[in-house]
Simulated scan of single mutants.
Amino acid sequence: MDPRPSLQLAVVMRRERQPNRWENWRHALAEVVVDEPLFGSAPRLLHEEGGVARFLHPGFKVELFRDEGEGYHLNLTSGAPVFFVMWRIDDEDPSVATPQNVSLSYNEAGRWLDAQERVDNVPLPEDVRAWLAAYTEANYTPEAKQRRRPQSFRAPGERGAP
């Protein structure tokens, strides 16, 4: 049995030429698809029309780790589970945006945002959501919440500083 289940994915990025007078390029995450052998391994242009282009970036792997269980749980219970994609604009050529990593963990996406990375998300397909839910249910147990006694029920000497 594979200790770390994984999926091969491809990321589709959208690029728009001069969307307004202040920007030369605008990049956005378009979708994440389960990788097929037909995709190959090199990024390529899928379609370009009217200043809008879509690029396929294959070869991403999402692995599930037991210590990220809380992040998966938070993603699944958010109401709209998503793929999180961290991507960067090329410093030398701002017309190029490249995805760097894909995750299913809400906590990992938060760490990327804390590091001031660009992170976008797209909805999970139902089969991937079910796969993630099965793994999370089998490997994650939320910590029991401990009820704290209100300060007013404690003796004055036991109360913490305000």
Results as ranks from 00 to 15, higher is better:
R149P: 05
H27R: 00
Y135W: 15
D35V: 00
P150W: 05
T136R: 00
L132W: 01
A115H: 15
Y140V: 11
V52N: 07
E16R: 14
E137N: 14
P142N: 03
P37F: 02
E16Q: 14
V128T: 06
Q8E: 09
V12F: 00
V62R: 01
R54W: 06
V52G: 05
E126K: 07
Q151C: 09
W22G: 09
F153E: 11
E16G: 06
R118A: 13
L45V: 04
E158Y: 10
F83M: 03
V12I: 10
D35A: 07
L64R: 05
T98A: 08
E137V: 12
F39Y: 13
S41K: 12
A138Q: 15
V11E: 04
R17P: 06
A42T: 13
L29N: 01
G160D: 13
D91N: 05
G157M: 07
L45T: 09
P81T: 06
N139M: 12
T77K: 01
Q100D: 14
V85D: 04
Y135E: 15
G79Q: 08
F65S: 15
A144P: 11
E68R: 07
Q18P: 05
D2P: 11
L46M: 12
W112E: 07
H47I: 10
Y72P: 04
P43S: 13
N75E: 15
V12T: 05
K145W: 12
A134D: 13
P94V: 12
G51Q: 05
L56K: 00
R15D: 03
L76P: 03
G160M: 09
D90F: 06
V128K: 01
W25N: 10
P150S: 07
S152G: 09
F84Y: 11
V102W: 00
P94A: 08
L104Q: 02
K145M: 11
F39W: 11
A109F: 06
G59S: 03
V62Q: 02
Q146R: 13
P3I: 09
V96L: 15
G50M: 00
R159L: 01
V32M: 01
E31N: 08
E126V: 15
M86C: 15
L124F: 01
W25P: 04
R88C: 13
K61F: 04
G69K: 01
R26T: 06
R54M: 05
L29A: 03
R154H: 14
I89L: 06
R129E: 14
Q151F: 10
F39G: 04
E108W: 11
R147T: 14
P125L: 04
N101H: 12
P125H: 00
A134T: 08
L74K: 06
P156M: 04
A28G: 10
L124V: 02
V85P: 01
N24D: 14
P94Q: 11
E117V: 12
G59M: 01
G50P: 02
A161Y: 14
A28N: 09
R149N: 12
A144V: 15
L46E: 07
N75D: 14
N121E: 05
V128W: 02
R129Q: 15
Q146G: 10
A155V: 11
Q116L: 07
N101L: 08
A115L: 10
Y106D: 14
